[in-house]
Structure formats: structure tokens, C-alpha cells
Amino acid sequence: MKPVRKAIIPAAGLGTRFLPATKALAKEMLPIVDTPTIEYIVREAIESGIEDIVIVDGKSKRSIEDHFDSNPELENNLREKGKDQLLKLVEETTDINMYFIRQSHPKGLGDAVLTAKAFIGDEPFVVLLGDDLMQDEEPLTKQLIRRYEETGESTLAVMKVPHDQVSEYGVIDPAAQVDDNGLYRVKTFVEKPKPEEAPSDLAIIGRYLLTPEIFEELENTKPGKGNEIQLTDAIDSLNNRQHVYAHEFKGSRYDIGSKIGFLETNIEFGLKHPQTKDALRAYIKELAAKL
């Protein structure tokens, strides 16, 4: 069984929910306190043992490439002024095996993954979506890799959501619970079901570990909703030829794909950041007293 060494991070979306900020700035570069959201995703991959990362980007995403590139002028300025801690932060983002592929047309998540086929080759790999930040003692991507080492099969991350919110997600219909630690065999996938029709409350969240056979399924998947190639449809087809598992994530998930989720995440992370936590806590108390 080949080790999981590679990751795909799709970043070609237009970010329309954050206009006008994303008219000229990549949505993935919007910061949580002082760190671009995509850097959190990259860190999760690296902390999970991933060696090579490909970002599938699109037009107006040059800022992502620049962020992970060296900036000699900035680095020399920080070095000359003795700002060693800031210099370390800047240099950390350049010492990564990072590659970029352009998705020329917005044809959906499935197409973005398929675009990276040549990069992945015949190896298992992970897909990390940028709209979800995950926190746990062990990174979620590492949890999926561990599950793959147990089963040798594709494994998706799922999380229990309130029943009245299942229509906002793709959910799994579990065929069986494999163990007591939240591993399920998947019978089928249901995209945004009505609450009364949902087979479970286990929603698919933005982490996937896939075997290379998924590419054949993607190549044969017809465009679905929005005339886009849906990754979930291809995974459902893959499930007909080899087992697909779901791993229940029990850590903390931060939805940064919506304005309110983005604001909530900034507040929570700001309350943990050593440079902002005390002042922010005092401000929140002062503001609450006025409401």
C-alpha cells in the first residue's frame, strides 16, 4: 500500500459571497486575525505528514502564489531591523513543496481535482477544502491517513450536524458502523436532503482521502447541478467498485465560507491570539454592556 504523500487544495472559486473584497483579492487570502485562511489549510496538510501540495487556482489568484513565494526585499528589511520573529513567520511559508495548476474554467470541485491528475499519478491523496478550518489534538487530515492505513480505501470526513441543517450539506447513508470510534461503511451519498428524508445527520465536511481510481470516475462523471462536475457523484460511483468509508470528526470545525462564520472564527481565534486576546475580550465586554 502506497503512503499518502500528496494533497490537492482547490482554490479556483470566485468568492462571490465576499464581494467586493474578493473582486481583486483571492478569497483564500482573507485573514483570520493575521494569517490567510489558506495558510491554515496548508499547515494542516504539512502537520499531517503531507510532502507535496498542489493548489488548483484560477484567475485573480496570484496573491496565493506570492504568499508562498520568497520576498527578498521584505526578508532583508526584517533581517536588518532585527525582527527575527517576523522573519521566521515569513520564511516558514516558503519552505514548502508547493505547486500550482490553473483551472481555466469553473467547472466544479470534481473538475478541479481532475485537473491535478498528472500531479497525483497513481498514489492515494487528500483533498482539503478552504471553507472549513478544523482543530483537534490530531489534525483531521492525519486522522484520515490513519484510517486509510487501516482500510486501504477512500475515506471521507463527516461530522454530526443539527438535524434541521442537513439540507445545507451532502450527508451519508451509512451501511454499517465499523468500530466504536466513528468509522462507517457508506451505502450511498445524498446531496442536501430535506430533513425528513435525510438518512443520517452525518454531513460531509471539507476533507477527503481518495484512491487514484477516483480519476477514472471523474472522467466518466457527467456535469450535474450548475453544469459542474460534482466530486460527490464520482465518489458515489467509486463506492460501487470499492468500499468508501466515512470517518466522524469530533473536533472543532469553523465554517469560514460565509460572512457570519468568517466573523465568528476571527473572534474566536482573536480571543486565543497572544497579541489580541486581552484587548479583544475587554472590547467585547464593553460592547456587550452597551447593547
Rank of each mutant, 00 (worst) to 15 (best):
D180M: 10
E138L: 12
Q177G: 03
N181F: 10
T211C: 14
I204R: 15
D179G: 10
K194L: 12
P212H: 15
K160D: 09
Y184N: 01
E168R: 14
V186E: 06
V178L: 14
Q177W: 05
K192I: 04
F125L: 02
G130N: 09
A198F: 06
D180R: 09
E137A: 14
P212E: 03
T115G: 07
E168N: 15
Y184G: 04
D136C: 10
I214G: 02
V158I: 08
V186W: 00
F119P: 09
L129T: 06
V178D: 13
A118P: 01
G108E: 00
E149Y: 12
Q177A: 14
S167I: 02
P199Q: 08
T211W: 05
I205E: 12
K187R: 14
L218Y: 01
D131F: 09
Q135D: 07
T155L: 01
M134K: 07
D122P: 04
E197Q: 15
T155N: 01
S154I: 02
L140F: 10
S200L: 07
Y148M: 09
A112F: 00
A116Q: 04
L114G: 05
E216P: 11
L156F: 12
E213W: 05
F189W: 00
A203W: 10
P199L: 13
V186F: 11
R185D: 11
I204F: 15
V158Q: 05
Q143V: 02
E153S: 13
N181L: 06
G206T: 02
P162Y: 01
K107T: 05
M134G: 05
S200D: 06
E191N: 15
D201F: 05
V127A: 04
E137C: 07
K187P: 00
L202D: 08
E196T: 03
K117R: 08
A176L: 06
E150G: 13
K194Y: 14
L202G: 06
V178P: 07
V113H: 10
P199T: 08
L183A: 02
E217Y: 03
I120S: 13
